[in-house]
Design a protein around this nucleic acid. Structure first.
Lengths: 183, 183
DNA sequence: GTCCGCATGTAAGGTGTTACATGATTCT
DNA sequence: AGAATCATGTAACACCTTACATGCGGAC
């Protein structure tokens, strides 16, 4: 996961590990975080795999500049093109980089994602109806208020995501400047 | 984390590992998942720590019934009473069990949580204003549409959480039937 | 000259997943 | 009889966090 995020950040241009961390915190930081303890080993790994290239900047500190290699770019775009899932906010992370994905694939992915969300929403609504009916039969419904409220939260946040995705689908088509068609 | 969830589930009554898993999937499953590979070792651990008690049900299968011990209940309630944070949905998990927390502590936690959310919301709105101004100066704003949209999502989902928490705060007070005052 | 931000890295530990391995019971 | 579900558990691996360790450069 962190590997693809790093590659995605490096799509912007060469950067040091420290800068990558700061960029992550300031951009995707709202739903994804990286620590140096995972970042630096990841950079080392990616370098060994020839997906990025790290070069020492002689400049005083032992700062290194990491540059995305074509193979790394391919790997990133392949990850980006995978279908969206709602495991652990992977969806948000991918959509953040979706300007790099070609418009047609992007449309398809958003389409099936919103379909998936609608399915979940229907399901949750059905669950809520059942739960509501069961709740009426309880002597003390108030004793379960918080338990029940998470269902409400689930519904509301699903609605929020769905609305947002549908707004994305309304966006005028814009072919990526740096992305490609592959995978 | 999984330890506290298990303890929370066992507040309802004795259950087998398999039942705990199913209960988790069907209740908090929307934002938390457990695998058997983490669940069974956790049960073993909790048993060794004398927080739960597992007893073989002679009844045919090699099924075990796990019962919450008073020490486990204390540990769970202590976890529950900790302040809410927004790391990895821990907040949702805790609030799900909030009917077990005494009303006064609950009120305090929800209060400071919504304050925290409001702070984040103000911050994100400030960020968006800056970003909006910077966006106007770009030649091709459309090229960053998805990148920018995650900010919108962040705002909307923050608003959704905040509204929901504020609704919770309006709930009539209900002292927990099984929870306590401690810690 | 001291503190803060920049800069990189390692080691230990925590936490979880996937895949594997096994077997009983219930439903059709 | 066969399939699905119930039921428990281990081993390998993935992945990340925290704490530690080190040092440069600029600001005040």
């Amino acid at each position: 996961m962190i590997d693809d995020v790093i590659l995605g950040i490096l799509m912007e241009g060469p950067m040091s590990g420290y800068d990558i961390k700061r960029t992550i915190d300031q951009s995707v930081g709202f739903f994804y975080s990286a620590s140096f303890g995972s970042l630096y080993p990841a950079l080392k790994r990616l370098d060994e795999q020839k997906l990025i290239e790290g070069e020492e900047t002689g400049s005083s500190k032992n700062k290194k500049l990491y540059t995305l290699r074509p193979e790394g770019r391919d790997r990133f775009l392949a990850w980006l093109a995978e279908p969206l899932t709602r495991a652990r906010n992977e969806h948000m992370l991918k959509i953040f980089f979706y300007d790099y994905l070609n418009a047609e694939l992007r449309r398809g992915r958003l389409q099936s994602f919103s379909g998936q969300l609608q399915g979940e929403l229907h399901h949750l609504r059905a669950v809520q109806e059942i739960v509501d009916r069961e709740t009426e039969e309880l002597e003390d419904p108030g004793a379960y208020a918080h338990r029940l409220s998470v269902l409400t939260y689930g519904l509301r946040s699903l609605e929020t995501v769905l609305n947002w995705v549908q707004d994305l689908q309304q966006l005028p088509v814009n072919q990526p400047s740096k992305g490609t068609d592959e995978s």
